[in-house]
Design a protein around this nucleic acid. Structure first.
Lengths: 251, 251
DNA sequence: GGCGTAACTTGACCACAATCAAGTCGCGCC
DNA sequence: GGCGCGACTTGATTGTGGTCAAGTTACGCC
């Protein structure tokens, strides 16, 4: 039954094309050549994760790094008393743990967990190292990616140490607007991509405080619709209040 | 007067030898070959900075990165209201701003200032890129260095968000003990390398709070001698109090 | 519909650290 | 010595955000 086989093949091809498209959307592989992309897809594995599933634990040996194809991933650390500090939350097209595979200890410095039904591309360390050794341009691209990750962390530290809770929330909301290119009549709508409690932790705020702090932003044009989405009516005021430099993009 | 010339030459050689030794002490160049070292010293410039002198400002174009040969360097960011967040303080043998030269924006994401009379080795971006292109092992070493810098920043975020001021101070003191290999009779002595107010800022604490928080560590065996040095009599107790994992070295 | 759970909000209270303000110590300098 | 300056400490007070506890809302499910 050739029709059946051809259908299967067609599906396969479709899936691979989809992955290829997603991979090309990542900062790290956006200018990868097709021959290399083929090689990558051969060596890398697609892995599904259920909601709340652990991807790796802090201290695990780092044999691979990841690209998010679908869903959301939380990177976090735990203190002995169970205090959680969220280092990053990553969505489709973003990569993580690139640096861990190069660390001398070669262990992950954080825990990683899927926040939703998530699909990752798992890229083995060996492929990575080989690629760097034979292609210095690739090495430079990796360095750029890791450098901007570092930039992000530096910003994170600044935010947590010098801004108040409402300011951090405002800054977080504004980031989403940067991507969205703004609604015509001067106001933006943000649909929070994951639970508020996750956002709260990402900003080092307790959920209760998050709730109160969000309310404090109403004088600066931030309204929360009953439907759960947030609209920003006065972007200037909010930007000003949050003391955003606006020349440091998220990541 | 050949004696004079020979003396001058001898001095020159001595200075270069000194720099070479310091460079070989850095994580990044510890396994550099002598031919490359010679090339490096030819391309890199030694630069002295007076106390409190600015090395570069946030936003400046990053044409070079640096190795501290002598003195202390503070990396920090400023908020509009003048709030300062110290990202890092670096001493002899440590390098900084490696990542900045690879960033897409190619600008420094922080300010850098000399805390003391300081001497830096300034390594031009061009040398760096060239070296990476022709030596993939060097590229991997750079990646390792940047990766552990990233690890440091992650720890920094965790510290600031989950630990109290006394705990952070304790952790800071314990780091110095790791290097010092401990005094025989079970106690360690730490001489603070720079002003307490700088340490305070590095830990995101006001100087006043630092003073009080340090006093709160006395139940855990931390005594401040009138001479200004600090002794730790019960390392276990302090380690326990601070919730240190002790498997994440400073940098 | 009634129930149960999970996400979120609101309220009352508390604690850690920031702030403002004196006060002390150490040290170089005339 | 006396002075002045800068680093640090101590004191009194405030405020942001954490904690604990009780609602509220939304939504799935029998």
């Amino acid at each position: 039954m050739p029709q059946y086989v051809s259908l299967r093949m067609q599906q396969q091809v479709q899936i691979i094309m989809d992955i290829a498209r997603l991979v090309k959307n990542t900062a790290m592989f956006q200018s990868i050549e097709d021959t290399d992309l083929a090689l990558l897809l051969e060596r890398a594995h697609q892995r599904p994760y259920q909601k709340n599933r652990e991807i790796f634990a802090m201290g695990d040996v780092a044999e691979a790094f990841y690209v998010v194809l679908k869903g959301w991933v939380k990177l976090y650390r735990l203190s002995r008393e169970g205090g959680e500090s969220v280092i990053h939350v990553l969505g489709p097209g973003e990569s993580f743990a690139e640096a861990a595979v190069f660390n001398n200890s070669r262990t992950y410095p954080v825990h990683a967990q899927a926040l939703e039904e998530t699909v990752l591309l798992e890229i083995p360390r060996s492929f990575f190292v080989q690629k760097i050794e034979e292609d210095s341009q690739f090495a430079l691209r990796i360095l750029a990616a890791i450098a901007s990750r570092q930039h992000y962390l530096v910003q994170q530290i600044e935010q947590v140490t010098t801004r108040t809770a409402p300011q951090r929330i405002g800054a977080f909301l504004l980031r989403f607007c940067e991507h969205k290119e703004g609604n015509a009549r001067g106001f933006w709508t943000v649909n929070l991509p994951y639970d508020k409690s996750v956002i709260a932790h990402r900003l080092s705020i307790r959920p209760e405080t998050f709730s109160r702090a969000l309310a404090k932003l109403s004088p600066y044009g931030v309204k929360t619709n009953p439907s759960g989405e947030i609209t920003i009516t006065d972007m200037m005021a909010l930007t000003d209040y949050c003391d955003i430099s606006l020349f440091g993009k998220p990541c």
